[in-house]
Design a protein around this nucleic acid. Structure first.
Length: 410
DNA sequence: CCTCCACCGGAAAGCCGGGTCA
DNA sequence: TGACCCGGCTTTCCGGTGGAGG
């Protein structure tokens, strides 16, 4: 009996190593970032001489290579430290998930080899633990705080403490690298923290189409087998990503998803068509993800719009949606919001790009929003029904018809 | 040119869960 | 522990409005 993986493994060979196209991968070379690499390295070099490097702030939009550059330079720094027998370490924290002062300190303590429970201790005790761990020997610690803006939103106390930690250390030295893609967040920061953290500043400009192309070519060589890429695939991906703030992450996603689509349909080459398909898929995935995290009320509202669309009405007004939504709430037993509030929820859905709405005047017949749902319905319905408060709608197949009928009878 | 529809969208106040401080 | 505060969500109230129809 053939192994079930047999056929899957022997299907057309597209990917040599797909992980190369993921954001987590740090390549051997970073095209078009030598300037930033050199600057970063020259700021950090005191670490190898037993001195304290300046703190650094790094700005740049998503996909401009901030994290990759820091990781790359960090790795080289540690390597060099090892060679010179100097204790010099880089610790990387992403503040998106570790977003409170306690968690930052506890995680730091953990990577420094101290055992601190993820909850329970008083914060200053954890801080002392971190301090002692750092000061346990003559060493330089570089702390990288990625997406530091997420942290600041919940209070900048940790940053204040960390920025002053050098004064309390006997033997060790600490340097902090903050990475942010939000330029405005400076304004929320305590000026004292700001001045101490941004002794040096690095800006990462967006990539242009040519640069993106270089990046993609470099990765594609490792990611794909020879000859599976049509000639115009990479330029096309690069051009698409360049249109949107020169985001390398996006360009890599496009290339990877194109490859996955080609692989799934058993093609032996990736074509421009696959890229177009990938654009659609990424867009849908985006919307689906946004829908999943919506509050229940918005989900119900959106379901109402699906009901309307399916009964053949592709454009509808606030009032129409509201009527359907009200019926829906009654049916599934959740409380119903005011029209005023629903109006705001509609604006939010519009902002998120899930629906399209414009304010129009129909003269005699009033002024209202004209709403359209122009994203694929089925994937959205599926996530909406995942919500237990809406799941009862799954069984009533005829519900769509009955509801919209009720609307028209009113 | 005026009217008047059906909603828009600003302002303000209420409610609620969570956190803080004495 | 209770008084207090904060921010997010929601309701209430209401003045405002583009343009088809008269």
């Amino acid at each position: 009996m053939p192994n079930i993986f047999e056929s899957l493994m022997s299907s057309p060979k597209i990917f040599r190593n797909r992980d190369v196209l993921r954001h987590s991968y740090t390549p051997e070379h970073l095209p078009h970032r030598s300037e930033q690499i050199e600057e970063l390295a020259s700021i950090l070099v005191p670490a190898l001489k037993g001195e304290t490097p300046s703190n650094i702030f790094i700005y740049g939009k998503t996909g401009t290579g901030k994290t990759a550059t820091v990781r790359y330079v960090g790795r080289q720094l540690e390597e060099m430290g090892k060679k010179l027998k100097i204790y010099c370490y880089v610790h990387y924290l992403n503040c998106e998930r570790i977003d409170t002062q306690y968690r930052v300190l506890a995680t730091l303590a953990k990577v420094l080899g101290r055992n601190v429970p993820m909850t329970g201790w008083p914060t200053d005790q954890v801080y002392d633990e971190v301090k002692n761990a750092i000061d346990s020997k003559d060493q330089t610690i570089v702390i990288v705080l990625d997406e530091i803006d997420k942290l600041v939103r919940k209070g900048d106390e940790v940053l204040y403490n960390l920025s002053r930690i050098n004064g309390e250390l006997e033997r060790a030295r600490v340097s902090i690298i903050g990475i942010s893609n939000d330029l405005k967040f400076k304004n929320f920061l305590d000026p004292r923290v700001l001045s101490s953290l941004s002794e040096e500043e690095l800006i990462f400009p967006p990539y242009n189409a040519e640069q993106l192309q270089d990046i993609l070519e470099q990765r594609a060589e490792l990611a794909f087998y020879e000859g599976v890429l049509d000639d115009d695939v990479i330029p096309y991906c690069a051009a698409l990503a360049a249109q949107e703030h020169g985001d390398a992450r996006k360009a890599l996603d496009l290339l990877r998803v194109s490859g996955e689509i080609a692989e799934k349909e058993g093609a032996d080459k990736i074509t421009r068509e696959h890229v177009k398909e990938a654009v659609r898929k990424i867009e849908t995935d985006h919307v689906v993800e946004a829908v999943r995290t919506l509050p229940t009320q918005s989900k119900a509202l959106l379901y109402g719009m699906i009901v309307l669309t399916e009964s053949g009405i592709r454009k509808f007004t606030t009032g129409e949606v509201y009527t359907v939504y009200k019926n829906l709430c009654k049916k599934i037993g959740i409380d119903c919001l005011t029209q005023r509030r629903v109006s705001d929820l509609i604006s939010e859905l519009d902002m998120l790009g899930i629906i399209n709405s414009i304010v129009i005047s129909k003269g005699r017949y009033g002024r209202t929003r004209e709403i359209r749902l122009d994203v694929p319905i089925e994937p959205i319905r599926k996530v909406l029904l995942e919500d237990y408060r809406l799941s009862s709608l799954a069984e009533t197949e005829s519900f769509a018809k009955s509801t919209s009928l009720e609307v028209f009878e009113i």
